[in-house]
Design a binder for these strands. Structure first.
Lengths: 229, 229
DNA sequence: CGATCTGTTGAGACGAATCAATGATCGTGG
DNA sequence: CCACGATCATTGATTCGTCTCAACAGATCG
């Protein structure tokens, strides 16, 4: 079965962090649960829905014909998905863990946006912050060394991941991190283990990265314009 | 003098390609002319204005503390600038050539967006297409070879540049292309000249790149999801 | 408890960066 | 209008970082 509808979820709790009106969107859609590695939508396919992540982790990526993969973003509860899409999805979205999403018909969302300028503002804000992340990502991919990339990644997702030290701590596997950072899995492994030897991080389990020395990571964060908003 | 106001411009003509209502924005602002290499705004500075390019070329970039530079996008007449910014600019914008921009107070634009949902839709569309470009750019920076990057760049900006073969054809210098593609200037030069030897392009002048064999470039374009919308 | 992913580690190859020198082009002022 | 300096582009030699290939170790899961 491709997807199961209206199932409840025991994953990390839903954080309504993305504004007031956006939470009202909930009435427009249904809750869908995806299994690990299940595709939510594929690049090139029609885009009749947009989504909000309620629980679990999602990766958004683009592929080359020969299988090269670039992960564009990792999404967690509260994050919006595919609100920028046109009629066709230009990226693929997959559940990394068991994931719960609110799925809303684009037509109904668009109709609501036509009459609710406050909601439209919130959506614009969300698109803008996605764009900002994409621009930081471009500097990382274009100009940073492997070590700097890993440091930036850890700082970004240490901020985002809640403190909750659940068994399912960090749903990205090494290859996901590599494909987000534009590196090979082996290089990510090497850098992480080198950082472990330097006591900057600890790797208690393959899915769990604990930051021990945040200052060292920040020293590797070479971005100008620190106030990352 | 830092900038000259209300000057007329003889650069490529203004293309009102970005929608109906957006052109109405014109009444909100003033026209400003920037000299080549002049900064329009800097990363980290307050963002009281947003802009629309009327003539000339603009580059948007992010810097590292040590001077490494990543160009995020090149803008041409019709393109919007800084509509996604919050209170602070997170990127720098510079004129590449002599450039004419419409400068609009963000407060007035936001006020208009609160009551004009159609304009808001057009802005949202513009942000979405920027996001799409940023995502293609991420795949390029993270996963493509130097040759593939140059080919993608040529295809992208061959589409964007009008046929107009003006003396000031292509305002990007080699280092701009390099900083957009995440390469060194030398590598860009080597790839371009290798393509010239293969009769894929011609380089009649350093500022002018003419595509002779588009099919060969497209063969190097390894992106999946061809329908780039 | 084996089978299959996932992660680690090493050796070697390769692509692009860097460093360096020269040549072309542009802009400016004499 | 030409000469000059400054910027930009080309090309070569070398270095360096990361990828690839390969073997193995550990986890995870039926």
């Amino acid at each position: 079965m491709y997807q199961q509808i209206h199932e409840t979820d025991t994953s990390p709790p839903y954080r309504p962090e993305a504004g007031n009106r956006i939470s009202e969107l909930g009435t427009l859609g249904v809750v869908i649960v995806f299994r690990p590695k299940q595709e939510i939508f594929g690049a090139g396919s029609p885009a009749p829905y947009c989504y909000k992540v309620l629980g679990g982790g999602v990766r958004v990526l683009r592929l080359c014909r020969d299988g090269r993969r670039q992960i564009l973003e990792f999404l967690f509860p509260g994050d919006l998905l595919a609100f920028g899409a046109g009629n066709i999805h230009m990226a693929t979205a997959e559940a990394m863990t068991r994931a719960t999403l609110m799925r809303m018909p684009r037509i109904r969302v668009d109709a609501l946006l036509k009459i609710d300028c406050v909601l439209a503002l919130e959506i614009r804000r969300s698109l803008s912050s996605q764009l900002l992340l994409a621009q930081r990502h471009a500097l990382l991919l274009g100009r940073k060394s492997a070590e700097e990339r890993v440091a930036s990644f850890l700082l970004l997702y240490a901020d985002r991941q809640t403190e909750a030290v659940l068994p399912t701590d960090r749903p990205m596997v090494r290859q996901d991190i590599a494909d987000y950072l534009g590196l090979s899995g082996e290089t990510v492994s090497r850098v992480l283990n080198q950082m472990k030897r330097q006591r900057i991080i600890d790797l208690p389990a393959s899915a769990h990265i604990r930051i021990l020395d945040r200052a060292s990571l920040e020293a590797l964060d070479v971005d100008d314009c620190e106030g990352q908003q």
